[in-house]
Structures are given as structure tokens and as C-alpha cells.
Simulated assay, not measured.
Amino acid sequence: MKLQKDPNNWAMQLGDYSGKRYSPLDQITTQNVKNLKVDWSFSTGVLRGHEGGPLVIGDVMYVHTPFPNLVYALSIKEKGRILWKYEPRQDPNVIPVMCCDTVNRGVTYADGKIFLAQADNTLVALDAKTGEEVWKVKNGDAGKGETLTANPVVVKDKIFVGISGGEFGVRGHLTAYNIKDGKQIWRAYSTGPDKDVMIDPQKTTMLGKPIGDRDLGVSTWNGDEWKIGGGTTWGWYTYDPELNLIYYGTGNPGTWNPAQRAKDGKREGSDNKWSMSIFARDADTGAVKWVFQKTPFDEWDYDGVNENILADITVKGKPVKALVNFDRNGFAYTLDRVTGELLV
């Protein structure tokens, strides 16, 4: 939180917990931007898609790469001099399991550590000053189609990380680990029984009302399809410190063939919950406060992992603690981030 308040730092990929990606620094303006010239450049040496930005903490810039997930610490004052380099040893057999290039969406800084989610499902904490491993933990199994491409986020004493691989029959989840030693605190699934999803049908709300029905993460699927139901969590996570809620989206349902997911071959009743949904979870316990499904029975691979931007705005003449999501299905959603009610 302290690092986020100083605009000279960029301590997380989204800039801050709200997900706005906005910097209040005003040295560069619309008037003088045309005069910018290259001062120095740095090549990572990896010629694949780079899908995350560098972090800046004080006078150090931290740069990451797609597979093999190198991490560099660079001196800003010394025009990119390498302070340290981390090069994990990964089994290259993970590459064919990565559905959409070998990308990685960025490292995170907290507690004097750099956190990296490696393609081979290893979540590793590095000493920010030396690059040495502090701890590492396995978050999944590439043999089951699971990989890691998401950018983890730190909230208080926990680091949250998702999972990729919806195209390979992976069952999506979000997991919280202790930032000190990597101990798993909780894991919440996107599909399956309420106890696995951490839903209480009498307390968890959908569209502002208690869900009521039990185990919709099972009953809205054909047979046991929920076990390979996708709903992976490879996008972005935002957080409201006042509400202590972490927000994120789930991806497309698995398998891609919608006929396999339809109950008795019918679309009716086959919402495939809770794929393509926005979750609001208690950051401490993982319990779901509210959930909103954007595209039930997704047949188009829209995914639902785009940023859930937190903004205090006026909606229909009233001030609202809002969550704004621009989805790949072509709709923009404005919800009350306290209750999950759909406003616009």
C-alpha cells in the first residue's frame, strides 16, 4: 500500500489495487511527449510475446520475459546496468501445453521480494536485492494441462495466483499463499460443489439476492463436465482495502465443444457456472461475497478475465462504489462492488 501511494514507484502491473493503470506524474504531457527521445534500451534476449510491463521501485527496474521466464533487475541511474538476473530451469515440455504463446503477464513486488509465476506452475519468491530464491511452491501440474501465465497480486500477508489451461480441461482456481514462506492458505475453484467454490447459497449474492440453490457449479453442467470445466483465472485481480474483497474474472468453460456441456443436449439449464463470471471474495478466507455470470454457456471463447476496475463514480445521479468491466463479449458492465448488483 505504501509503495502504491508514491507515484514514483510502479510496484504492481495495474499500478494500484483499483486496476486503473493511471499515473498522476505530470512531467510528460500531451504537449511535450513529441519531444521524447530514446535515452537507453535493453533487450531481454527472448523473442516471444511480452505481455506485462516492468516494475519500478526506487532506482531499480524489474523486467520479466515469457518462457523461460527470466527476471532482470536493472539500474535506472546507470542506464540499464544489470544488477542481477534470475534464470529458472524449466522443463521445455511445458511449452506445447501453453495454448496461446509462451507469455507471462508480469512480476509483483512486496515485502522486499519479487514474485514470479513460472510457466511450469512454480510460484517463486526472489530476494529483490540479490535475485536469490527465498521460497518456491508448485501451484499446478503441466501433465494435466495446467500452466501459469497470470500476474500474481499481493494483499496484506498473502499472494494470490490463478491458473491457465482452460483449453486442456483444467478446472480453474484462485489460490492464496503466505508471502513469508509460500504456505497455502486457501484455494477456491471456479466450478464444482459450493464447498469447493467457497459459496454459501444463503449468504453469497447474485444480482443482489442470495443464490439460494445449492451446488449450481455442478447442476448447471452435463454430468461430470464441471471437473474439466475451465473457468481459468489467468487475467487480472483487483482489491478494495475497505471492503477487504478481491475481484477477478473466470475464463471460458471447458470443453470448447458446447454440445458436451449441455445437459440432456439442451441449452436450457446449462449455464456452466461459474465460468465466465466475476467473483468478489473475502481476501482473508476466500469466501464468496457475490458472483455475477456475464456469459452463461459461453460458446464463443469470450473469456471473462479482463480487468475489474474499481471506481467511485456517480451512477443515475447517485454516488456508487462501482466495479466496471469491459468484457470480450462486447458489453461493458457497471456493478455495485459492495453488493454485486448490476447497475448498467
Rank of each mutant, 00 (worst) to 15 (best):
D312K: 13
N104Y: 07
D215F: 05
T285W: 01
W84L: 06
G231M: 05
Q202E: 12
V315R: 04
L174I: 15
I159D: 11
D312A: 12
E87I: 01
A128D: 14
L343R: 05
K5C: 05
G131N: 05
P54S: 14
V154G: 08
N257A: 03
V63N: 03
D301S: 14
W274I: 00
P152A: 12
L310Y: 09
L83E: 02
G80I: 02
P96S: 04
L14F: 02
I28K: 09
V305H: 12
R21A: 13
N121D: 08
D284K: 15
P210V: 00
W84R: 06
G286Q: 11
D16H: 15
K266Y: 05
V197T: 04
L148A: 14
M61D: 00
G330Y: 05
Y247V: 08
I246L: 15
T238I: 05
K156D: 08
A259D: 09
K37P: 00
A128L: 11
L323E: 01
G112R: 09
D224I: 01
W84N: 10
L3T: 01
S270I: 07
T238P: 11
V305W: 11
Y177V: 04
K263S: 00
S75L: 12
K113M: 08
T314P: 03
L74A: 01
V155C: 09
R171D: 12
V38N: 10
G317R: 12
D213N: 03
P319R: 12
T238W: 07
V320W: 08
V315G: 08
I114E: 11
Q202A: 12
T147C: 13
T314V: 08
V170F: 04
L14D: 00
V63Q: 15
G58N: 11
D327W: 12
R81E: 03
G169H: 14
F326T: 07
A280P: 09
I82C: 01
T255D: 09
P54I: 08
V63Y: 02
G192F: 04
E146K: 06
I28M: 02
T238A: 12
D215I: 05
E307Y: 06
R261Y: 04
G212Y: 04
K85H: 04
K113S: 15
